[in-house]
Design a protein around this nucleic acid. Structure first.
Length: 956
RNA sequence: GGGGUCGUAGCCCAAUUGGCAUGAGGCAAACGGCUUAGGACCGUUUCAGUGCGGGUUCGAGUCCCGCCGACCCCA
């Protein structure tokens, strides 16, 4: 303690007056931030509209569109982990600007969201107030880091000017249908026209012409890409809202709040993303994305090919029908020894017999007197579990027999039909044929219920497991009297043979299914986009015309949806908007004269705005269109045939690998189909930045102690004298390990902070934060500063004489390397090379040559823009270096005069030779052999390998 | 359980994609210089043979196989 106060009392009296300290860095940084803002330095010109500017130095230049995943402006502000990607894109775009591109680098806010609403519920403060306050704070934090954003393009999804177009896009989707023949979305008017003209017959018995208005609307509503559905959804009483599948955890609880989630049939908005499943899978191939992300999307969509097969049945009561199943293994049909239908399947009522058939196996009954009782009891139990619980508990096989048998179409065998909760109503057809011989879950079920098991694929030699899922020749799979023999065929051949047979017999059909479901698009919340939809007396949705957009949120007293006992599965959603009665009940003239309507009281999910914000950045002030097509074509349009177009570089965390990126691709494709955009993918190139995490410390009671005050003593840690224990995790209040960029700017300066974050490792790798290592970045900038500025006098010290040959060589090697590193986002190695050059110039002693130090300053600029601008100015330049040309390496100086070859004998380095760079291979070989003559010991080399410019390898 | 990513000095990371680990760079540590002193100065030094075991190759941190460990996605 004594030392600390002593240090505090003694100012840095001997620090030279013009040293690059945190205080000086702060002055420089404020100066240049003001300069950039006053001049609009980072504004990028559009081809047309309000933001066009033919005078701009980059107008008409090749374009480069880069942005980060925009943040939700939380009340906690930024910690040092957040800006990692932001700094990365800022470095990259500053470099690209210097390399001659017209660079668009915007930033905005994903401003609708739950925290502001929850805060509003607690305090009564309107979410808009909190959100705006937080956005100002975020923006100031980003400004302090020197981000080169085009500030005119800052958007927030919660602003009416923005969500007016979110609503417009919703209406585009609502007013479209997917034409499966054309493979694309088309306006609903086209469908109406085709029905009216009779070129497309209306499905069902009734012709279009015979339908009344309500029937026609009902038919059209079934085809819209956004539709209201009464489907099983995830109802979370504790939150008072429904949730998307993705927002439910594996143990069947809400991701937010950890409340139980129940399957309920409720009326909700859905988006027909399944119509795009194939294109969403196929187009991944043309994207420059990390493979793991592509794989996650493929798995999420889960395309599988197989067949639908119909199993006819007749119940004891005389009802006849068919149970349709989907299977990826139609080749195993001969091994289908029983069937399972999901407990909720509507056909269960028909299938359930009044009495157990003669001789029913006791375990099948569940101990009940009748199938009716058994089924009712089983259904009750299943309804209490979530879908995810059911899948998770599926290892304990349960189920009951319905009392009905179906007929296997390939061999006429009678197969018992069960209900069991390992089959989910929403998956496939909600019914399966069970093939225990080739399916593990079916095998387990068959063991529990003592059902027959027939192998129809011969297992590989040495296989001693139960179900065999591998490839092999078909066995026990022949019905010659029916013209079907699969025996001996491999899985693939057997599949195509049986599908052909099924189709010919009308007993089934080849089919492709998807794991992907339609997207549940409504939430019972306040702080989100209202739907531009009203309902008339029919209860059917009516789109509002463009002229009535935006539909603004009503002012309400209570922002919370009504919540319920978290376990009350029978409760019903009651939305915050539904309580604003005067807003909900409106009189509008929608073309039929003034009529009463009821507004939709849901709001859109948080993903809506982020589905298309990349487009709005392009034309943020356009009040006629979401984006002018000309601006979209310039910034995002395809560059050649087959090119998807899209943002040139999109940087964000891998946690958005599926949801956000899948939804955004889906919306973008709809807009493409409808002709609103020229790109068919939103993000041409995706990059996942890593996370910066931090150590946290707990004492022996398990209490978290402030990480900042922990002392490191030889690998053990102490807090107030007591040993504490280290763990590693996200930065956050609860772990008391938050470090903010503001603290770093205060203690070191923004440039130092930027350089440190870029230098500490590759952008895509997660790493621990270490404040004490930041000083290394500061020392580097201090040395660069000292090269140009005399620390005692503040005068610029630079020599005009030419640099010596070695310095030139080093300089151009570094230029070449840094250029490549920046192009490939290898910022860590780029910084290392700049440090190498700086150390080289420092070691020369006296003032550095201008021809060496100016390129150094320019190359440092993307990383540390403020200090670079300051040095550039002190070197005598009057303009910002933002649009200076990035240094270009002289190829002549990249070629070494001499090359040193290591010489290996049998893989071990035995000597080195130095030859001129243009020496021929024979000369190198001769020199190498004489160098290692001793090691060869007179033996003749069996083989000599000369790798030009690399090494020589001798084999004896 | 299935799929994926990754293991290099005390720590963060390089290694031209199969070609020299006398490690590019940084932190920490130690020593020296300047200094009354200190270090956010200058310089020097110490520290690994690449998680483990096989294989392919003239040559493996890099490719293949099997383990161990960490993280992510899906169950």
């Amino acid at each position: 303690m004594a030392n600390m106060s002593e240090a505090a009392e003694r100012p840095d009296q001997d620090v030279p007056p013009f040293r690059y300290t945190a205080a000086l860095a702060g002055d420089v940084e404020r100066k240049w931030q003001d300069y950039w803002e006053a001049r609009g330095t980072f504004r990028a010109p559009n081809p047309v509209g309000e933001l066009s500017d033919p005078e701009h130095p980059r107008a008409g230049a090749p374009k480069m569109y880069v942005h980060d995943m925009f943040p939700y402006p939380s009340g906690d502000g930024l910690h040092v982990g957040h800006p990692l990607g932001y700094i990365g894109t800022d470095v990259y775009t500053r470099f690209k600007r210097m390399a001659g591109f017209n660079v668009l680098h915007p930033m905005g806010f994903d401003a609708f969201g739950l925290p502001a609403e929850q805060y509003a519920v607690q305090t009564g403060t309107h979410p808009r107030i909190t959100t705006e306050r937080n956005m100002v704070r975020f923006w100031n934090q980003l400004r302090r880091l020197g981000m080169g954003y085009d500030e005119r393009r800052r958007v927030a999804t919660s602003e009416p000017e923005f969500f007016r177009w979110t609503q417009w896009i919703f209406l585009q989707i609502f007013n479209s249908w997917y034409d499966a023949d054309a493979g694309k979305a088309r306006p609903i008017e086209d469908l109406i026209a085709e029905y009216a003209a009779g070129t497309r017959p209306a499905p069902g018995d009734k012709p279009w012409a015979a339908m009344d208005g309500v029937e026609r609307r009902a038919l059209l509503d079934e085809h819209r890409l956004a539709y209201v559905s009464e489907a099983p959804v995830n109802w979370c009483p504790g939150l008072g809202t429904v949730l998307a599948n993705e927002e439910v955890t594996p143990d069947g609880r809400s991701e937010r709040g950890n409340f139980p989630v129940f399957k309920r049939r409720l009326k909700q908005w859905m988006m027909r993303i399944t119509a795009y499943a194939d294109r969403l899978v196929d187009d991944l191939d043309v994207l420059d994305w990390p493979e793991p992300v592509k794989l996650m999307q493929r798995n999420w969509i889960g395309r599988s090919t197989g067949a639908h097969v119909d199993f006819p049945f007749e119940t004891a009561a005389g009802a006849e029908g068919e149970i349709t199943v989907f299977t990826t293994r139609p080749d195993t049909l001969f091994g289908a020894t029983y069937m399972v239908v999901a407990p909720e399947h509507p056909i269960v009522d028909t299938l359930t017999a009044a009495h157990w058939p003669e001789g029913t196996h006791a375990p099948w009954t569940g101990g009940h007197e009748t199938p009716v009782q058994a089924v009712a009891e089983y259904r009750r139990a299943a309804a209490r579990k979530t879908e995810v619980e059911r899948a998770a508990e599926a290892r304990d096989k349960t189920g009951v027999f319905t009392g009905t048998y179906a007929v296997n179409p390939v061999n006429g065998a009678r197969v018992p039909v069960f209900i069991a909760d390992y089959v989910l109503a929403g998956y496939g057809t909600g019914a399966i044929m069970a093939v225990p011989g080739q399916d593990e879950r079916d095998w387990e079920f068959a063991e529990v219920f003592e059902l027959p098991i027939i192998r129809t694929v011969r297992p590989a030699d040495g296989f001693d497991g139960k179900a065999y899922t591998g490839d092999g020749p078909a066995i026990n799979s022949a019905a010659p009297d029916r013209g079907l023999v699969l025996d001996g065929l491999g899985v693939v051949e057997a599949k195509s043979t049986i599908i052909a047979w099924l189709e010919e017999r009308g007993a089934g059909k080849g089919a492709t299914t998807y794991r992907l479901r339609d997207w549940l698009f409504s939430r019972q919340r306040y702080w989100g986009e209202p739907f531009p939809i009203v309902y008339d007396e029919t209860g059917m949705p009516v789109a509002l015309p463009d002229s009535m957009l935006p539909v603004a949120l009503p002012e309400v007293d209570d922002f919370a949806p009504r919540t319920f006992d978290p376990d009350d599965a029978d409760s019903n959603p009651e939305t915050p908007l539904s309580r604003a009665r005067e807003w909900v009940d409106v009189e509008l003239d929608l073309g039929d004269g003034p009529k009463r309507y009821v507004r939709d009281t849901n709001t859109m999910p948080n993903w809506a705005g982020s589905c298309w914000y990349s487009l709005r950045y392009l034309d943020p002030r356009n009040d006629k269109q979401a984006v002018d097509p000309e601006n979209e074509a310039y910034w995002m349009g395809p560059r050649h045939e087959g090119d998807p177009g899209g943002v040139d570089l999109y940087v964000g965390g891998v946690e958005h690998a599926v949801l956000h990126l899948l939804y955004a691709r889906f919306w973008h494709k709809i807009l493409f189909d409808l002709g609103h955009v020229s790109s068919f993918e939103p993000y041409r190139r995706l990059f996942n930045q890593g996370y910066i995490q931090a150590y946290a410390f707990r004492d022996d009671r398990g209490m978290v102690v402030p990480a900042e005050e922990v002392e490191d003593r030889d690998g053990r840690w102490f807090y107030e004298g007591d040993e504490v224990f280290r763990e590693y995790g996200k930065m956050g209040k609860s772990l008391k390990n938050v470090v903010t960029p503001d603290e770093m700017c205060e203690a070191y300066g923004a440039d130092t902070f930027r350089v440190y974050e870029m230098a500490m490792g590759p952008l895509d790798v997660s790493r621990p934060w270490e404040t004490r290592a930041v000083v290394g970045a500061q020392r580097f900038l201090q040395r660069v500063w000292r090269l140009v500025v005399d620390e005692e006098t503040g005068k610029t010290r630079v020599a005009e004489a030419p640099a010596d040959a070695a310095t030139k060589r080093l300089l151009h090697k570094v230029i070449d390397g840094v250029q490549g590193d920046l192009d490939e986002l290898r910022f860590n190695t780029g910084v290392a090379k700049l440090i190498e050059l700086t150390n080289g110039l420092t070691a020369l002693g006296g003032p550095p040559q201008r021809e060496a130090v100016e390129p150094l300053v320019l190359m440092t600029a993307p990383f540390a823009p403020h200090v670079a601008e300051e040095l550039w100015q002190r070197l005598g330049h009057t303009e910002s270096l933002t649009y200076e040309t990035f240094p270009v390496a002289d190829p002549a100086l990249l070629v070494a005069e001499e090359v040193t070859y290591p010489v290996q004998v049998n893989g071990k380095v035995r000597g080195r030779i130095s030859v001129s760079a243009d020496a021929g291979e024979d000369d190198v070989r001769a020199a190498a052999l004489s160098e290692v003559a001793d090691a060869l010991n007179g033996k003749d080399p069996k083989k000599v390998i000369v790798v030009k410019g690399r090494m020589v390898s001798v084999v004896v």
